[in-house]
Design a protein around this nucleic acid. Structure first.
Length: 850
RNA sequence: GGGCGUUUAGCUCAGUCGGUAGAGCACCUGCCUUACAAGCAGGGGGUCGGCGGUUCGAGCCCGCCAGCGCCCACCA
């Protein structure tokens, strides 16, 4: 047994216990266990290139409390930690941190030294050099995250870390992709895709967000081909006029019905385009007739596809107008187009408006409006739609049968809180395309694919050259396809690498397979998959959660886990959403320094499951006070209760038994709460009980406990105090791992975090009466109230107390009579049966001297 | 436009069978009491967002409305 400190303190606990936990492998996973004995958690790999913020601490602490509970319940917790370093956020961070840009055509420079800080000019570097910088920076970021996680006491097995760009993740991603391809679940298509003109990459539906943007309706004069007049068409994007391939109205719209099947002529360019009908055309919008461009928005794509219209693309992948207009534009039209060639959409719009004004084909002035515009969630300019060759993965976006199955899996999954399921369902409901998984970026998992080149050096996209399974992971830009040699790269008759990398979610959606060893550890896989729990944030249900279900359905035909907990969002102290641009981001480490890890955890676990929670220093302060109280109360209990053995049979007095009965109810309630992943309820109820335990029970038995240890009633108090302390500490342990471990170490061997979760049954002793503790505490409270009102010390003696109450309560009081009198310094205690409960307190006369 | 959630004390929030409104913080008044003054005891403070309904009885169940937050959506 360790020494109980004279003056217990929280200082240094975190340092000391993290080291001991690490040394002793307290949270080490035992992989010899069977699936039924294991609780496996698919922890979110945090985006390491982002800053550490309170959100990074909030959800992870809640999950850790659940992990700790499961561990104490006897489950062998499989709790790995990953780092999401793959993808655009890292690329951006590297670009900004070093002031570099990746230029894939440049050769590798082995002597390249990265600048310490960005120079005046952006330095262009090769893809391999760029990737080296990515690797270097994420290593630093990962170290910072690990430090915070360890400090916060996350009970992960640090020997089981992974990164989403690491070899295991690359191998898993590539293998899964090749298997998707073999089963026809992955395919490539040359089709219009949403495109970010700054990052020059395709983006998926899941990465879109609408932003309310100013715009304007421009009323354009289209001319009837038969010369019978003009048709006015409203558009917010007049600059795309050159890409117009038709105009469209609703089939039932009588205003335009006569025009269907005829042609109109576009302003400025004089191009004849047909008037077509489609049910998506909204008679209420604009003038009721719209121009269809390839492509102004996603509705254009639908019209283009369903009405089989020609393609007249005008925007390049850089978001600028192409040098040459579509073929149908010639003569004066081509001259007009020359003014916008090479311009951005914004610049071109101004020019077009001037041109339309001069030609008299603009009806009135543009009318400003605000309207939702699609953006890449990390992007700065509106998305354009560009036709390009991309890889897709089937996700139910265009396959009703698969969609129904995914819906079924969503219903099968246990959601906590339950109502989060609707987000999954409404996302699935709104899916309108398969998952675009290729990105024209660099720091990601490459597709393990090459293409045959024909005699003229053109890629034959139908002739895929696939990497062999055992060769994974491969980088097709440096590795050769089976049967080829490097000299044949990009040579006629040879091969060329697929240049793209996978969407970061294409890797993240495989975290269950990555951590459980699907590719190269079948033994581990069998013991841990399907997993038990996916904890995550609400904002990535449509990406991470949904995609993971899709991949598991495609690969295993089953859910990847049985349960998911969706944590709430962290708001800043003023209850605003935290964001870097608002400058209101709070970082956790200084708060850990100030209040302690347990206090920060207390704050996080005070937030109800799934409920948005504001950063609240007051709550952290309360958590710190609680931790200190636990130290002090434990010091007292262990000091006064000596070395009493924990024989519950020695608990003999009615008050002790009554308190243990109440404690048993608490344990049952806490257990039920945790079984439902409700750490907050367990904490709240345990905390409430603990304070009353300190204020009432401890005060009631204090003087008895100081007595002769051989006396049966003294021993009863000692044993009860110890049993209750041991129970309460274990209920606190999932939330307050440091202080509970510290106190545990004063009198117990082994880690509290490896001890058994308490059971209510053991605390129920036959014949215990719940009223005894209740009435004793009530009477003591009444006595205190009088002393407080009279402004005398609580130590002041009381001459007489008369309690009037029901016979049952008076009986209960009688059973605790001695303790109540001792605690209240009461000389005489009288009782009187009565229907109206009251307590009369008569203080002893002052002794005269002070 | 559709949906989910939320609204309870000055603040942050509990309130799980429908049965006399709770906690912490803050504020006020006391108290050095042999674990803890980083403590303890006590006190004031609420038309439970609004309206209507069901019920002997509604913070809780039902309907409508409003504010706030979020999710989804093919708005030229």
């Amino acid at each position: 047994m360790a020494q109980i400190p004279e003056k217990p303190s929280l200082d240094g606990l975190e340092q000391r216990w993290s080291e001991i936990w690490e040394e002793q492998g307290t949270y080490r996973f035992d992989r010899t266990r069977t699936r039924a004995e294991i609780f496996s958690i698919d922890t979110p790999p945090p985006t390491v290139s982002g800053s550490l913020h309170m959100g990074s601490a909030f959800g992870y602490v809640q999950t850790d409390a659940i992990a700790r509970y499961q561990r104490m319940r006897g489950r062998h917790v499989f709790y790995p930690m990953g780092w999401d370093d793959n993808g655009l956020p890292t690329e951006r961070r590297v670009q900004n941190f070093y002031g570099v840009r990746c230029e894939p055509h440049l050769p590798y420079d082995p002597g390249f030294v990265a600048p310490d800080k960005p120079g005046k000019d952006v330095v262009s570097i090769s893809r391999p050099n760029f990737l080296e910088l990515c690797d270097r920076l994420v290593a630093e970021d990962e170290a910072a995250f690990e430090e915070l996680w360890r400090r916060l006491g996350l009970s992960v097995d640090w020997s089981l870390t992974y990164t989403t760009i690491g070899p295991g993740a690359r191998r898993t991603s590539q293998r899964a992709f090749l298997r998707n391809l073999a089963r026809g679940e992955a395919y490539q298509a040359d089709a219009p895709t949403l495109w970010d003109v700054d990052y020059r990459t395709a983006v998926a539906q899941a990465e879109l967000e609408d932003r309310e943007m100013p715009g304007a309706y421009h009323a354009l004069h289209f001319h009837r081909a038969d010369g019978s007049g003009d048709v006015i068409i409203d558009t917010t994007r007049p600059e795309l006029l050159a890409a117009c391939v038709a105009v469209v109205a609703h089939p039932d719209d009588d205003r335009f019905r006569p025009l269907f099947g005829t042609d109109v002529v576009t302003p400025l360019y004089g191009v004849r385009v047909p008037v077509v009908s489609h049910h998506l055309a909204d008679p209420e919008k604009g003038t009721g007739i719209a121009m269809i461009c390839t492509f102004g928005d996603t509705t254009d794509v639908v019209w283009w596809r369903e009405l089989q219209l020609p393609t007249r693309a005008v925007l390049g992948i850089d978001g600028r107008f192409k040098a040459e207009p579509p073929d149908v534009i010639a003569g004066t039209g081509a001259i007009a187009y020359a003014d916008i060639a090479g311009r951005t959409a914004k610049q071109a719009q101004k020019i077009i408006v001037e041109q339309l004004r001069s030609s008299g084909e603009l009806d009135g002035d543009p009318r400003p409006i605000t309207h939702p515009v699609k953006f890449y969630e990390k992007g700065e300019r509106p998305l354009e739609i560009v036709t390009s060759r991309q890889w897709y993965l089937r996700n139910g976006g265009r396959d009703l049968e698969l969609r129904a199955e995914l819906l079924g899996l969503g219903k099968e999954l246990e959601w906590h809180p339950e109502n989060m399921r609707v987000r999954y369902e409404s996302w699935l409901d709104g899916l309108n395309s398969d998952w675009l998984v290729s990105r024209q970026r660099y720091f990601g998992v490459p597709f393990p694919i090459w293409y045959r080149l024909d005699g003229e050096g053109n890629a034959r996209y139908g002739e895929l050259l696939l990497a062999a399974d055992e060769s994974l992971p491969v980088d097709p830009s440096t590795d050769c396809p089976p049967g080829f040699v490097e000299a044949q790269r990009d040579m006629p008759g040879g091969f060329t690498a697929d240049p793209d990398v996978m969407d970061t979610w294409a890797t993240s959606s495989l975290t269950p397979q990555i951590v459980t060893g699907w590719v190269d550890d079948p033994d581990l896989f069998e013991r841990t998959f399907p997993m038990d729990l996916r904890p995550q944030g609400p904002e990535i249900i449509r990406t991470w959660l949904f995609d993971t279900v899709v991949r598991a359905r495609l690969e295993h035909g089953a859910l990847p886990w049985t349960d998911t907990t969706i944590n709430g969002w962290v708001l800043d102290p003023d209850r605003k959403k935290m964001s870097k641009s608002k400058g209101n981001v709070v970082t956790p480490m200084p708060l850990v320094e100030e209040y302690g890890a347990d206090a920060l955890r207390y704050w996080a676990c005070n937030g109800r499951p799934g409920v948005d929670t504001a950063v609240d220093f007051g709550i952290m302060k309360v958590g710190r006070k609680l931790a200190i109280k636990i130290l002090n109360a434990s010091k007292f209990v262990l000091g006064v209760a000596g070395d009493a053995a924990d024989e519950i049979a020695a608990v003999s007095t009615p008050l002790d038994r009554s308190m243990l009965l109440a404690l048993a109810s608490l344990v049952d309630d806490a257990t039920t709460a945790f079984e439902g992943f409700d750490y907050a309820r367990c904490l709240e109820h345990t905390e409430r009980f603990f304070w009353s335990f300190c204020d009432d029970y401890v005060e009631l038995v204090k003087s008895r406990a100081y007595g002769d240890a051989d006396d049966a009633v003294v021993k009863s108090a000692a044993v009860t105090l110890r049993v209750a302390l041991a129970t309460l500490l274990r209920l606190f342990a999932p939330v307050l791992p440091y202080v509970s471990e510290e106190v545990w170490s004063w009198w117990r061997d082994g880690s509290i975090h490896r001890s058994d979760w308490p059971s209510g049954r053991e605390l129920r002793i036959g014949g215990a009466d719940p009223l005894v503790y209740e009435v004793a505490a009530d009477v003591l409270g009444q006595v205190r109230k009088v002393k407080s009102t009279m402004q005398v010390s609580l130590a002041a003696p009381v001459q007489n107390v008369c309690v009037i109450d029901t016979p049952a309560r008076l009986d209960a009081l009688a059973a605790a009579r001695a303790d109540v009198c001792d605690a209240g310094k009461i000389a005489e205690l009288d009782t009187e049966p009565g229907s109206v409960a009251s307590v009369r307190v008569e203080l002893a006369a002052p002794s005269g001297d002070s």
